[in-house]
Amino acid sequence: MSIFNFFRSSAKTPATQAKERLQIVMAHERVGRSGPDYLPMLQQELLAVIAKYVDIDQNKVEVKLDRGGDCSTLEVNIELPQPDQERKPDGKPANAESKPPLKQAAAGGAALTKGGIKRR
């Protein structure tokens, strides 16, 4: 085995990269399309409930449907704001006026993952 083969064997082949990229992009595109009719509604209502308690950024929400052989998994990924940004009892975020820039919020935010709404 030449030294080049040695290096190459640990790298992903272009075909493998193609497969992985397709799986990721298509999982996103399938949500609300090939899924059951209630999926988009479910997503909206879930978000509405969570938004009642925490200030969530719609752009920091990721919904993914994985189609498997005999069961599919709905994964909802919501990034929560920093603790001091959570709503006060009066319903308004503590520092609504002086939000940190998005990137910073992302770094400080906690990620909440709700896995496992399964359907046949």
Partner: peptide
Amino acid sequence: GEMLKVDDVLEI
């Protein structure tokens, strides 16, 4: 490894 194989396409 330059082209997607049948099984990969079927799986996707």
